[in-house]
Amino acid sequence: KFTDVFVKMVPLAVQQALSAYGQRRADLVNRLIAQMRESTNLANGVLASLNLPAAIEDVSGDSIPQSILDKSKAVIQQGGLQTIDQLMRDLPELLQRNREILDEALKVLDQEEVTDNELKAKFKERWKRTPSSELYKPLRTEGGNFRTALDRATHADKVVRERYATHSEVIALLCKPEAELNAAIPSGNPTKSLQGSEVVMLLKTLLAALNEAKKERETFENDIKSVQFDMSSKFLTALAQDGAINEEAISVTELDRYYGGYTEKVQQNLKKQEELLAKIQAAHEEFSKSTQSNTDANQREEMLKKLAAGHDQFVELVNNLKEGTKFYNGFTEILLKFQTKCSDIVFARKTERDELLKDLQQS
């Protein structure tokens, strides 16, 4: 039942190359995913601002357009404001815990350094070891980076809170039962002969195509995330053949081989969406001209737009809060490791200090 525990050991050069490759890959994948998500946000934003698809669904002028009803159901199904409240409640505690761990870790360094300085002052040149202030520099730098990260997280919390404050009313409205929601939407005059209209047909087709583009991006994202291959054999071979690893050249080639196709497809998808959005906006202009425009209709339209945007904001908030929670929990682990590092080195210093004191007293 022998298993070689060293089977994954590689030369240092390969380890470093793998690390650098990992960074490149992460950058590429994150960039592609960010592009795609941004374009979905853009599409949603444009549609909401044009009151689509609600406007072309709104035949009666006083019942809730199906798409708005669907959005309301989606928000309710995900727990509505309660989900958000819950996630938001936990964040300050998580932040506080992380702060405390970091503060504690750095405090033990500070305390030991004070004592070391005192002894240095007392024994002067007889206190021969490296000063703690010198020794602890890398740890303090690391601690400083952690603090910066916590500051960024605090700012992120604030952004999320503000977003919540701005949109909680609309989200609450979306969570109401259908009858109540309907009552909150101003009545408008029904749009005349809506269904048969050519421009409505066109808009429906374009919106369906836009939805397809969104779905395609979801597929891409899943596919891109599941691409997996092992670079260690490539780097090992290069090292064996050439005695050195040209990491950049090898990584770029391999990344292009595995992701190049996706990069291409994503670009095509984004371009297609750009064209669709332009056509949708043009068609919407036509549509607006052909529909009766008055105060009632405008008020209704504004409310429907707000509700559509509210759904998107809810989704965004939930994502932000999940991201924040994940960050704080993951960061706790990192900080605990850091704290252990600090207390370990301080313990070693104390032991060393006691030895030195003993020697000095004896001499």
Partner: peptide, 16 residues
């Protein structure tokens, strides 16, 4: 993304 990347914060330092 709003929050810092955990990957950037994980430092694998060689034990000295």
């Amino acid at each position: 993304s709003l929050y810092p990347s955990l990957e950037d914060l994980k430092v694998d330092k060689v034990i000295q």
